[in-house]
Amino acid sequence: MVQFESWASFFAMGGHGLYVWLAYGATFLVLAISYLSVRGARKRLQQELSWLSGEGGGATQEEETKL
C-alpha cells in the first residue's frame, strides 16, 4: 500500500527528507560510478587490445579513422 498521500509528502518524508534522500542519492551515485568505471575500463582495454592484436588488420582500422 502506498504510504504517502501526495508527491510533496513523499519528498518530505515526514520531515526526514534531507536524510532519506541523501542516503539513497549517495547509494545510487556510488553504484552508478562503480558501474561506469568498470565499463569505461573495459572499453579502453578493448580498443587498446584490438589495435595491438591487429598487426595485419589494425592498419586498416587506423586508416579508417584517418579518413
Binding site: 500500500m1 502506498v2 504510504q3 504517502f4 513523499f10 518524508m13 515526514g14 520531515g15 526526514h16 527528507g17 536524510y19 532519506v20 539513497y24
Partner: peptide, 14 residues
Amino acid sequence: ALGFAPPDYQQGNS
C-alpha cells in the same frame, strides 16, 4: 522501500 514499506512507529520515515 521508499513508497510502500510502512514507516517505523518510533523512527518514522528515517
